[in-house]
Each structure stands twice: as structure tokens, then as C-alpha cells.
Design a protein around this nucleic acid. Structure first.
Lengths: 236, 236, 236, 236
DNA sequence: AATGAATGAGAGTTCATTCAT
DNA sequence: CATGAATGAACTCTCATTCAT
């Protein structure tokens, strides 16, 4: 068996735990931590617009500096390379997404309630942050290995929120699915969200975000109720 | 209602119809059509390896020329710009994917049979062509508007194969789903396939392609059987 | 009649008026205006030598950069394209020519005096700046439309100096010519000057600049004294 | 004295003599002389249009070959380099100009008659061949030294026609000018003609070719009648 | 005599990063 | 801590010419 051993640990759905956002420390030439935070905020806010509009490769460091009202020199006091900026941007977006999703979750909700709430909020966030999510998704590969890994982990941390929800649903009996499907379903949920961003050019012609959300939710719930799930489809 | 008007036209699943691959003609300086085809094959084969390994932007035209044993000058006799190469690569991949999928489909199959066969084949193709599919998916945005559109249309042409299958299943009663869900499900199927390429770094740790395929197939079939689908999930 | 309506306006010969040199602003990446002026001076001085020796097309940007002791990157901080350099060179030459000619003119001179002084000075300038003038004349066509126009206007501004002189001569009675010949004569004067540069290979074998100047002056004065001018030459 | 010793030789104005067109032999890979002539005609006719429209440097050999319905390879059987084409074009234009001017001249005409006829024809030719003349004038400098010299000699051969006419006028007493002014006046005449081509952008706004011709003729005749010519203009 | 595919040196231009001030 | 001028390696693409067929 290639499935991972599963330990269904009691864990609060919204709690701070090992799954949450990692940070890769970007060295700065400047000491004042508060200043660093402020300046990096500036940099991220300037860069993200440009990256969305023109893509990472077609955006120059000069443009970024201009957009965030820093001189090139000053900007480079707070980062080490252009790729650092992309990393900071990705991290910032993931952080915001996670925060927005966690915000609607409540420890006292049943698994089912958490699932529905969480899914709808995920879709809401995906729609609101559409171009930001798309950015991560299209430019992550431009990061150096090391940083790319962290960004992927951050992505997994959000996926893990849904794994926790599904686990809870199994435990409190409000969701019916095989433990071995948890990971897959969590991934599916995330991808259904991302789909809205990277297939928007097609989906957007047929659905509003609300329609899209409810239809997908419906389809998902078909998979979370007692069915013939687990049964093997015969060879055809 | 924002749903498109649906006309369930009798159409053979594997038939040649208006949905299939478009081609954007790339002008060449050379006249011999056969030679053009051969040289472009060389270029595509050389470039695809490099693009997969280093990405489009970090691959230089000289590297491509060297890899495909053409002088830079000769290479440019067969393309007009570096972006043309990316386009040719994308088109070639899509064409191969489509061909491989169509190959297993048989007009006489029921909708259900076509669905299962088609889905399994899609997954097989996605696995075999994993890095190629990932490439399309990561670099399409580097194409100029015009060509990007064609590539997206080609993608949609493959999605349409599954739309046709689902329509057939509805008509012959072997699949049960709301007509309005056809498009969405077809997209979902494609994305489930792509997921394997762009989340392989995570999924690959937990599933073999066969496991992944069968689990996803199972989940999908839950959505293609009579259920409470269509029912609206209440506000929570 | 196709002749322009002529308004003999009181205008001082050397005065600042609407005819004088236009400037097309070339954007720079660098902000310090003084530095821009200094560096552009360097670039112009380096480029002009090369353009004269090898022509615009056969001079490379690298050669120019080397000649003016700037790195290629630095040079491009002060211009936008190779054509910009050519434009700067042309403008600089025209500016210098105009300045040199205006320098000898005096408001209090009669039209006749101004004419003689102006013409002699024009010839002096044409001789001193022979290869520069030739350069403008041979390479203007390599400029993009927009800039070519400005250069031509600058040329016309110098021509206009002589139009003003001739007008003055008519008004104070020291030169006798038909008002309708002013423009033509002014052009002729300019072309007599340019001739020295572009037919020097032949003229230089027969005349010194002084001889050339005085002979041409003599011929011109024949046209500025009462004659049978205006009379129509019969068909032959 | 720097003036050339002058021998007023009896020479027929329109006669074939040492002044006429030189030819620089361009080697060909092909033997058949007639074929060479025919193919070169093709090349010249194709190239001249392109050179006029885009300039020599911006026209590619491929374009020329296409325009004259020859393959690149074939074209290169009849020339040795792109510059050869420019040379052939220049020569062809000069030859045509000369022929057209000589055509109107008649041995029996007086100097005065020849002058008026010749000048008017020169202007007519300059107008008809405006863009061709401009071409020679702008691109000659792109020729290699050797060929540039020949082109200039061909230009001088046309100038010499007017020198002969002026000499005749002196001898038969129909034109009054100093022998030492012959060369200068002949050059002036040529330049007045060329002016129409290279200052057309300005002159064309004020004069028709006929107006231009007659006015310039008038001005010139002022210089060919007894005047104070020869007199030295005092220092001012 | 005709063809046109192949060549590759070299063109103009860009831009992430540095470092003296 | 802030600045922005300087740098040059590296990029994509061109095109006159050759030569095997």
C-alpha cells in the first residue's frame, strides 16, 4: 500500500498548528525591523500590480522601484534579488488567503458546516483575489528551487485546512467518506478554487461565481454522502 | 440565467467536427513544405526538452538551435520569433494529446463506456506527458495574445471531447446528470487530469497514477448517478 | 499664382524670432540635467567623428560607446536608440552653424552689408564644418520621419536668416530683387554653401574657399542689382 | 593661381568625347553577354524601386531578388555584391539622364540657344527623374571608394555638357562670362537641378517645376550678360 | 545556368545589480 | 539609510553570401 498511514488526531479546525504558513527569511541590509516590514509592504504592493499586468519576466526592477516610490538603490537594501520580490509577493498572497479562510471557521461548527462555510469562503476568496492567485500559479516556477518549495508548502498549508475539516466531518459523522480520500478531496477542493482563476476565460462566460460555487458544492456533496464510493469500477 | 442555450446535437463522440484543433500558420522563409515540417519537428523536439528543464524565458534561442542541430540562422528560416517556437511546442503537445485520447474512443460505445475509457486514457496521457502538459500550462501566458488564444482554443477542443461524451451518456441514459452541468463536469475532468501534472509534487507522494485515476473516477461516478444533485445547499 | 503671400514684416536680421532652431526632446533614463548635457556632448563628439569617417550605418553603437569613453550601457542611459545619436549630432551641427552665422550679423547693418557679411560667413562656416555639413546632408534620410522633419526645419531656420536679410535689403533699397524671388534666392544661397561640401571633391581641385566665395558672391550680386530680371525668356 | 589652365578646344556640344560616361565592369559568373545585359536590366529595374522606397541599407538582397523575379542564387550569378547593384542602378540613372539631355542639343545651335534648351531640359529631367536623382545623391556614399569615384565621374560628365555649352557661348559671343567662371557656373547649373530633387520638400510648396525653371533661368541669365562681374566686392 | 537552404558573425538593445557618494 | 549613475554580459534576430544540387 502506498497510502500514508493516517492518524486522526484531535485538532481544532482553525487552530494554529504545524500546518500553517512558513516564512523564508529574506536578508536585508537594514537593521530596523519595523522599517523593513514597512518598506517590504511598499515593494509587494507595487510589484504585485505590475506582475499581474505584465508578468514577472516582463516587469523590470526599475518599474517596481518607481511604482513603490523607492529608488532602485533603496529597494535593494530590502531585498537581495528580483526573485525575492516575487517570493515576498507570493507569500503575502498566501498569507492573506489563509487568513481570509480561517476567519470564517469556528471550532464549534460541525464538519459539515465547516465544509460548506469553508468551501464557499474559498470560492469567495478565489474570486476576489483572482488575479493574485493566478499570479502565484503562473509565476511560482520562476522562483529558485528553495523558495519555490516554501511557496508550495504554503499552498499545502491551505489545503491542510480542508483536510482538517474533512477529518472532523468523519469523526463527528456529518461527512461520509473514506479516510483515504481525504487528501485527494482536499486537493480537489483547492483545484476547484484555482480553476476559477485559471479557466476563468472560459468558465466566466457560463457562470457567475455564485453559480459556479453552488454547482461545484453540489457535485462535491455527492461525494461526501453514503454512496457506492470505494467500489472498484470494472475494466471496460 | 447566464447558462448557455444547449442544443444536444447528434454527434459521434470521436467524429471529426468543428471542435477539433485549430492551427495558427507560422510563416517560413523556406518553401519546401516537407522540409518545413521536418525542420519544425527538429525544433520542437529540441526546444521542448529545454523548456521543460529551464522554462521558456531561461532558454536562449542559441541553446535551442544547438539542441536541434541547426544553426541559429537556419532555425530562423523556419520560425519568426522565439515565441513561435513556444507556440509550435504547445500546438504539437495538444495535437498529440487529442490524438491519443480520440484513439481509444469508439462510436459504438455507450456514453458510460466512453466516459470511463476516455477518462482513464486522459489520465494515462496526462501521466505519460506530464512535463509536457505542465509546460503548456506554465508557459502559455508567455505567448502573444493572438497565439495564446489559439492554444486555449485547442485546450477547449479537448475539453469538448468530454462534453460530447457526457451528452451522449445523457441521451442513451447511461449517465445521469443535469444538462447544465455538462460544461462544468467536462472542465472538472480536464482539471483533474492537469492536477496530476501541476500538483504531482504533492500527489505523487501519496498515489500512483493508477490509484489516482481510480479514486478520481470513483468520485466522479458519484456525480454521474442519480443523486440529490440540483438540490440547493441551504445557507449555513 | 502659386507664390506665397508675402508680408514684409519689420524684423531685425539677427533677432530671436519664430524661425529659429527647434528641438526634439530625447528622453533619458538619468535625471541630472547637467549630466545629461555633458554626456550627450561626449556622445555627439564621439559619434560625429565615426559617422564622418564610416557613415551612420557602418558605425556600430559599440564603437560609438568606446569612442566616447562610456560603456554601452551607460550610453543607452542617455539615448533611446542609435538614431537618437544621429539626431543629436545633426541638431548640434545645425545649432553651431546658426550660431556662427548669427554672430556676425548686426541689426544696424544695411541689407546689402548684411548680405555680404552673411554670405561670406556662411561660406566660412561651410568650409570649417565641411564634413559635418556633408554628414547631415547624407544621413538625414536615415532618421525616422519625425526626427527627419525637425532636422529639415532646422535647416529651413538657417535659410530663413537669409530670407530676412533679403527682405531688409528690399526695404532699405540696398538690394534690388523681386519679392517673389526672396525664397528662391535664399535657397540658392544655402545650396551654394552646401555645394562646397558635397562637390568639394571636384570644386576643391579648382578653387580655394576664398576664391569660391568671392566668385559666387559676384555672381549673386549680378542677380541683386537692377537687371532685366522678371523678363520672360522666350521659347527657343 | 590655382585655376586650371584652360584650353578652349573646338568641341561639338553634343558630341561623343572623353567627357562621356564611364563604365566599371562588374564581373559575372555567366558568359552570355546578352543574357547578362537582360538580367542586369531586370535587377536594376527591381532594385531601383526598392531603393527609392526604403533606401539602400534597408533593402535586402532577398527583396531585390523577389522583386525582379530571380532567385537569390541566380541574381548572384550576375553581380558580386549588393553594392554592385547600387552601382548598376546609379550608372543606369546617369546614363539615362545624359541621354535625355543630349537628345535636345543640336550642333548648330548657338551657345545661348544651347544653354536655354539644355537648362530647360535638365530641369525637365530632374523633375521626371526626381526620386532617381535623389537616390544617387543620397546613396552614392554607400558605394565602395572605387565605384563611388566612377559614379562621381559620370556626374561630372553631365556637368561637362554644360561646360561645353558655356564655352561655345563665349566663343560665338552669345554668352558673356569670364572663362574662369565656366566650371563654377556649370556646377551651379547642375546643383540648381539637383536642388529641385533634394529640397523639393520645401520648394515644391512654393513653385511648380515650370515656375522654378523659369525663375532660375532668369537669375542665371543675369549672370551671363555683361555686368560688373569680375569686379571684386570690397571688404565690409 | 538556375536554385534556394544553410550559414554565423555581428547588429542594436536591455536590465539586474552594484557601489561611490 | 538613501540614492541613482554606471556596468557589461547576454539577449533576440538579421541578412549578405555561398555552394551542393
Amino acid at each position: 500500500m502506498r497510502f500514508q498511514k493516517y492518524h486522526l488526531i484531535e485538532r481544532s479546525v482553525a487552530g494554529e498548528d504545524g500546518d500553517s504558513m512558513k516564512t523564508h527569511v529574506i536578508p536585508a541590509m537594514v537593521k530596523d525591523e519595523q522599517l523593513i516590514a514597512r518598506r517590504r509592504r511598499q515593494i509587494i504592493d507595487g510589484a504585485v500590480q505590475l506582475f499581474i499586468r505584465k508578468g514577472f519576466h516582463k516587469t523590470t526592477t526599475r518599474e517596481i522601484a518607481r511604482k513603490c516610490n523607492l529608488s532602485i538603490g533603496t529597494m535593494y537594501e530590502y531585498i537581495q534579488s528580483k526573485e525575492d520580490i516575487l517570493y515576498l509577493v507570493c507569500e503575502s498572497i498566501h498569507r492573506k488567503m489563509e487568513e481570509k479562510i480561517r476567519r470564517v471557521l469556528d471550532e464549534h461548527d460541525s464538519g459539515f458546516e465547516a465544509f460548506v462555510k469553508g468551501f464557499r469562503q474559498l470560492m469567495k476568496v478565489m474570486d476576489e483575489m483572482r488575479s493574485y492567485v493566478l499570479l502565484i500559479y503562473q509565476e511560482t516556477k520562476s522562483l529558485p528551487k528553495e523558495k519555490m518549495k516554501i511557496v508550495m508548502q504554503n499552498e499545502e498549508a491551505i489545503t491542510a485546512i480542508f483536510e482538517r475539516i474533512l477529518e472532523k466531518g468523519i469523526q463527528d459523522g456529518t461527512l461520509q467518506l473514506d479516510v483515504r480520500s481525504i487528501k485527494l478531496l482536499a486537493h480537489n477542493i483547492m483545484v476547484i478554487g484555482q480553476m476559477w482563476t485559471f479557466r476563468y476565460w472560459s468558465l466566466g462566460r457560463f457562470y457567475t461565481i455564485e453559480e459556479y460555487t453552488e454547482q461545484q458544492l453540489n457535485l462535491l456533496l455527492n461525494q461526501l454522502r453514503p454512496g457506492k464510493s470505494g467500489e472498484v469500477v470494472p475494466d471496460i
